[in-house]
Design a protein around this nucleic acid. Structure first.
Length: 342
DNA sequence: GAAGCGTGGTA
DNA sequence: TTACCAAGCTT
């Protein structure tokens, strides 16, 4: 599939040593930090994850510090980063490492992959980056680089085809220091072999099938489902002396355990009744303040935000938003921002 | 195997 | 503006 994996690896490594970015999770010999960074970087841009990573490891400096924290505090440090199950799994796995593995991060590939929230890619990324073992790790960057390099045009959303790409990466990693190679391949994908590739500055140009056949724009082939369901919610904002009424979402599903203003699907009248019934209150007045759309990967929320006055709010417990110790869903952080403006 | 799971950036 | 993309994993 790749004629000369050693030559390809050599070219890549020469380029990497000159062009690698200086990132906070790079060059740190600490499997725990590597793990945290890989979890944060899942489906997330480097620029987005970096400040979260810095804050997170400053507060949770060891795996046992993380293990001994509350899940709610971990979630708070994840607020705004998305895919909140990552934080839950990270915390759960930290407890396992701290309390069942004497706080020593596992170095065995199978054990690493057995951690909650760690799949095939992240396990192999940790194995190679943190332990310098030759396990090729294939993420979206690597799929793009290798499919173009080899001219591989099969649907990479199929695991069997992605495994073919992993085989090519594996044939290369055996000719380079694994720790650097894994990061180099992703670095090339992130900074050169992007969706619109910069072939003029690519160290692999001379051996790239896509470049030679001018098919960079057609690779990689990834057939994905982009269906998105739309939902309309009425959101009820109740305040009491600069405090607000928030509710905690269920501990499973979308935005699990995060806080939001109460929100209900359906028409306004039904939504108001649901609100009154759930919290045993009587709505005195309600005014529509504004509308807000929030887009998830698989849903769209159309939020209709109302300011609500209750006849008697003594049954509710209001909270201050300054130093609120629990994570709030981004859509509702946007609502909070809007309300301050109004 | 397909669907659920967040958010921000970009063309 | 819409659609896609970004260091994927779980059920």
């Amino acid at each position: 599939m790749l004629k000369n994996p050693k030559q390809a690896a050599d070219s890549l490594m020469d380029w990497y040593h000159v062009h690698k970015r200086d990132l906070p999770f790079r060059g740190i010999d600490n499997p725990y930090f590597t793990w945290v960074s890989e979890i944060m970087l899942q489906q997330t841009q480097v620029d987005t994850a970096v400040p979260y990573f810095n804050r997170f490891i400053k507060r949770f400096d060891t795996v046992c510090t993380l293990a001994n924290a509350s899940e709610d505090e971990v979630l708070k440090y994840w607020e705004g980063l998305g895919y909140y199950r990552r934080a839950k799994h990270l915390h759960e796995s930290a407890k396992r490492i701290c309390f069942e593995m004497d706080g020593v991060f596992p170095s065995d590939l199978k054990t690493i992959e057995s951690l909650k929230g760690v799949g095939r890619y992240i396990a192999r990324a940790i194995h190679s980056i943190a332990f310098n073992e030759p396990s090729a790790a294939v993420d979206g960057n690597v799929l793009r680089v290798i499919s173009r390099l080899t001219g591989y045009d099969q649907d990479l959303m199929k695991p069997a085809n992605a495994r073919v790409v992993e085989g090519v990466a594996q044939s290369m990693i055996e000719h380079a220091p694994p720790r650097d190679f894994t990061q180099a391949l992703m670095e090339l994908g992130a900074t050169v072999c992007q969706k619109s590739p910069k072939c003029d500055v690519c160290p692999m140009q001379s051996m790239c099938v896509a470049y030679q056949t001018d098919t960079q724009g057609e690779l990689p082939v990834m057939i994905k489902n982009t269906k998105r369901t739309e939902k309309t919610y009425h959101v009820f904002v109740t305040t009491h002396e600069k405090k607000v009424f928030l509710v905690r979402r269920p501990d499973n599903g979308l935005l699990a355990n995060l806080y939001t203003f109460p929100q209900y699907e359906g028409d306004l009248k039904t939504a108001l009744k649901s609100f009154e019934s759930e919290f045993k209150v009587d709505v005195d007045t309600h005014d529509e303040a504004f509308k807000l759309d929030h887009i998830f990967s698989h849903q769209v929320w159309h939020l209709v935000v109302h300011r609500v006055e209750l006849k008697d709010d003594s049954a509710l417990s209001f909270v201050s938003l300054t130093d609120f110790p629990y994570a709030i869903a981004k859509a509702h952080l946007k609502i909070i921002d809007q309300l301050k403006v109004i």
